[in-house]
Amino acid sequence: MNIAVCVKQIPDPATPYELDDENHWIIRPEDQVLDDTDRSGVEVALQLAEATEGTVTLYSMSPSGTLQGIRQALAMGADAAVLIDDPALKGADALTTARVLAAAMQQEGFDLVIAGTESTDGYSGIMPQMMSEILDVPCLSFARKVDAGDGSVTIERQTSDGFDVVEAPIPALITVTAGIEPRYPTFKGIMQAKSKPVTTLTSADLGITNTVHQVIRSVEPVAARTAGEIIEDDGEAYLRIIEVLEQAKVV
């Protein structure tokens, strides 16, 4: 099975993010890291590739030209990477990103596409679904477990109170949750990573023009938290607590 995995390189989440005053985009340092949620995607892809003697190709749109995150995923065991590195893609919105990645995958060929549920820096959570529409393949989302069948894939789809078993014919697209424990890169893998093929493409190579759609007009800070409600326990306080928890949809 030829598996395509979306990997996003993001500014290190351990350091506070800053926004550009003019266009409100996240300021991206030269050094970016592999998005943690994509480590799970790579893990699933590697497991499926091991089970089916397949290959894993990474796809990353990274206008800053960084390779550190891709190297990390290659070190985990992926076979090759396609980097779409184009200044015209700076500040690309979810739809543009989906078009670019889908075009690259169509050009290179695939049986299965794997993505995270949402990125840690942008967390729109819609890019993979847009890709599946553009690629015209079924989308199986929130997979906490993935099995390859004969010409099909089956997932356990995480729900709020359990899981659904969902099956689709391949080609298909799967989004995976962070619940899948990723492996550590091996030292041999780390040393081999730099000799694995990385193809660099521009949007023009993919025949994509008119790349940036979304404009961020303004950014407001999150409203300061207000003081919580203090519930005096007169013996019936639990009723109010249950009510609050129900409103918050946590029970």
């Binding site: 890291v33 550190q68 190297r71 990390q72 030292f187 040393m191 730099k194």
Partner: peptide, 14 residues
């Protein structure tokens, strides 16, 4: 080097 940092970060994560 980038490779040394990746290895260091891998052990740090572990």
């Amino acid at each position: 080097s980038a490779e040394e940092r990746l290895l260091r970060d891998t052990v740090r994560q572990f």
